[in-house]
Amino acid sequence: MIRKQLHTPSGTIQFPAYIPVTTFGRKYPLDGLIQPYLPRMAQAVMVSHHYALQMTKRPRLPLMIDSGGFAALFEGSRILERDGLGVLEINLGEEPELLTPWDVLDFQEQHADIAFTLDFPIPPNLDKKEATLRQKLTIKNALWARNNRRRSDMRLFACIQGWDIESIGRCAEAYASASFDGIALGGMVPRAKDRKLVLSCVREVRKKILDLPLHVFGLGHPEFVEELISAGVDSIDSSAYVKAAADGKSWFDPNTPMSEPSPTDRLRLALENLAFVSGKVPGRHRLQLYEKSFM
C-alpha cells in the first residue's frame, strides 16, 4: 500500500502520524530535555505560536506552528473584527496583546514547514451569535492567509471551527476546493469526552475534503488515537505524552505512577509514552527499536 505523505521543506511526513507538541522558553524545562530526541521519535513537531516566538534553536524535523488562536478561550480575551478579518485581543498582562492573521502568517512564513490559519475555538455552550461570528472570522482568516501567502513551499492548513456536526461540515465545505495543503479540525478538546461526537465530526470533515490531509488538534490520548485514524484522521498533535511523564506516569504501566520522578526519569517516561502512542499508529517504522529496548 502506498502511504499518504506530505512533502515539506524539512522532510516528508508519512501519514498517519502522531505529532508531539513541544515548547520553548523556561516554562517547561522538560521539553528542553525531550526536544533533541524528537527527530529520533517523531516525523514532525508542533509548536504553538506563543512558544515558537521564544524558539532559539529550530528542531531538526518538519515544524508545525499553530496560530495561537486557542488563547480565545482565556478569560478576558476578545475577538475583534478588523478590515473584515478576525483579530484576537489577549488580556493577560497589563498591556493587551493583539494576535492578527498577518502577524501570525508573517511569523509562520519565517519559521514553519506547516502553518495553521488563525482560528477561534468555539467552546460548547457558547451563544449562537458569538459562535457564528467566530466561525465566520475563522473562515475569513483562512481564506485571507491562502490569498496572501508568499512562500509556496510552506504547507498551509486551514482550521475548522464549529459548534455541531453540521456547522463543522459547512466550514469544511468552505475550504474543500480552496487549494489548501491540508485541513485541521480544532475545538475538539473540550468535546473529547463525547468520543462519538468527535468521530462523527471527523467523518463529516473527511467526507467534505475528500483525500486532503486532515489534522486534529490536541487529541493525543493513546486510547483514542487508533479510532481517530480509522475515522480518517492523518495526523494528531498532543502534549499528553509529556504531561503524563511530568506526573510520573508511563502509558505502558499507567496504574503505578512513579513518585518524585527526577528530570531524567521524566525524560525517559516521556520518550516511553511517545513510543507507546506511536505504536498505536499503523505503519510505525522508526520507533520499533526504541520500543523494543523499553518493553
Binding site: S259, E260, P261, S262, P263, T264, D265
Partner: peptide, 13 residues
C-alpha cells in the same frame, strides 16, 4: 548535577 534531588530519586539511580 540536578539529576537526583530527593532520597527516592537517589535510590532509583
Amino acid at each position: 548535577s540536578g539529576l537526583a534531588r530527593t532520597e527516592n530519586q537517589l535510590k532509583r539511580v
